[in-house]
Design a protein around this nucleic acid. Structure first.
Length: 123
RNA sequence: AGAGAGGGACGGGUGAUCGCGGGAUUUUUUCCCGAGGAAAGUCCGGACUCCAAGGGCGGGGUGCUGGGUAACACCCAGAAGGAGUGAUCCUUGGAUAGUGCCAUAGAAAAGGAAACCGCCCUCUCCAGGGCAAGGGUGGAAAGGUGAGGUAAGAGCUCACCAGCAUUGGGGUAACCCAAUGGCUUGGUAAACCCCACCCGGAGCAAGGCCAAGCAGGGGUGAGUGGUCCCGCUCUAUCCCCCGGGUAGGCCGCUUGAGAAGGGCGGAAACGCUCUUUCUCAGAUAGAUGAUCACCCUCGACAGAAUCCGGCUUACAGUCCCUCUCUGUCU
RNA sequence: GCCCCCAUCGUCUAGCGGCCUAGGACACUGGCCUUUCAAGCCAGAGGCAGGGGUUCGAACCCCCUUGGGGGCG
């Protein structure tokens, strides 16, 4: 019971989306969900798990801010894993509106917004 | 107490839970480590790797002097000039090797030439001659100030000052001091340049190995192409273009001009030496975050990507050391 | 990550350190013309990315910062 609880929140490297072919497939065939600050693209894969990819442009901000946003997106994915439908390749993109207000945004706001989008995957 | 000057250290802490990267132990867990003073800009200097092998040159860089260093455009000490009451700070080769430029204004902007308003003499005027003190122009006007001298003036003469040259002395040197001489020589080298010293080029996506796959394919060139560019020289069936195929894994990859402490040398930067001291990120879609509790001053700038030595830029706040000036009290 | 390049009116661009208070084209505004619009003519507004330095004087020369763009196995 304890071990299943541990694995449910983990984030191994097999659950990360790698390779430009995989990204191209999501962009070409995927469905999109949008909020005011994020775009989530997803497409069904042949695996039992989800795979998460994050794309943040250099234009978004300095390296420190890009790292922070990437960690927040991954943390949100990790914490909402038990409530998310399995078997999809997911790509998360920040929109331009986020980079303008990013210094004032907290983790909770990102978490609220992204977890809503994650729940709608596959619907 | 106030106002400053110089230099250094730190960059929230502790505990718990979940999660991530690496290593050790091993077959399943457990333990250990895990961003910065700037990791940044890529502005310099190296180490390292490749460029078939060379050769000088072009070209580039640095710029008071001496020392330190693997090396530097960095650091330390000193010199000259400038700013400040001061602690301190700022600047730095050569303009008598040559060339160029100095718009407008101004008479004249650099082989020593020139005269607009002027001054003086000859003189009725016209005109001729002497002069550069004063005015004016300009960022800058051909040494400055004072006295003598003169028709008026002028280094024409003299004194002092600035500057130049020579000689002597001190200092490793930049330079300083003294004497003598002739009376004088604009600014700009972050303009070309001269002098002294240094530099081959590209960069870890360098480069090497393995696996898979495609087509041992087609075309141009023979003094063309490549070694950063140009020229010379040397070498080779080589180079380039079009089209096609992969874009996976491993090595490089982190122990190093390393850190801490002690001793010695040195004025300092720094160097030498010892410790059975410490080992301190190594990812590759790219690891540090979230939650809870407590405390304080409620946390700025901001994230390693081959590695070091600097410089520069960004930065909330806290602490320490040395020194200066002003005011008050004893 | 490493290595380069660029920055001039709203846009595309000229520009020997002094002629530059920066020229031209399109676009914009106002006027003339036209019954009206377009075209044409006349006039106007609007810029050297920012900060230091060299120079008597910088769009131009030298540093630093910022913002764009490109190349690589």
């Amino acid at each position: 019971m304890g071990s299943s609880h541990l694995t449910s929140f983990s984030f191994p490297s097999s659950e990360r989306l790698k390779g430009s072919k995989c990204f191209d497939r999501v962009f070409r065939e995927g469905y999109s969900l949008q909020s005011s600050h994020f775009v989530v693209l997803f497409v069904r894969n042949d695996l039992n798990d989800n795979r998460l990819g994050i794309m943040i442009r250099r234009k978004f901000g300095k390296a420190h801010d890009r790292n922070r946003l990437r960690r927040w997106i991954r943390e949100t994915y990790r914490l909402t894993k038990p409530y998310t439908v399995k078997g999809f390749d997911i790509v998360v993109l920040p929109r331009k509106a986020l980079s303008d207000v990013f210094t004032k945004v907290s983790f909770h706001q990102v978490f609220e917004e992204l977890s809503e989008l994650y729940k709608r995957i596959g619907a």
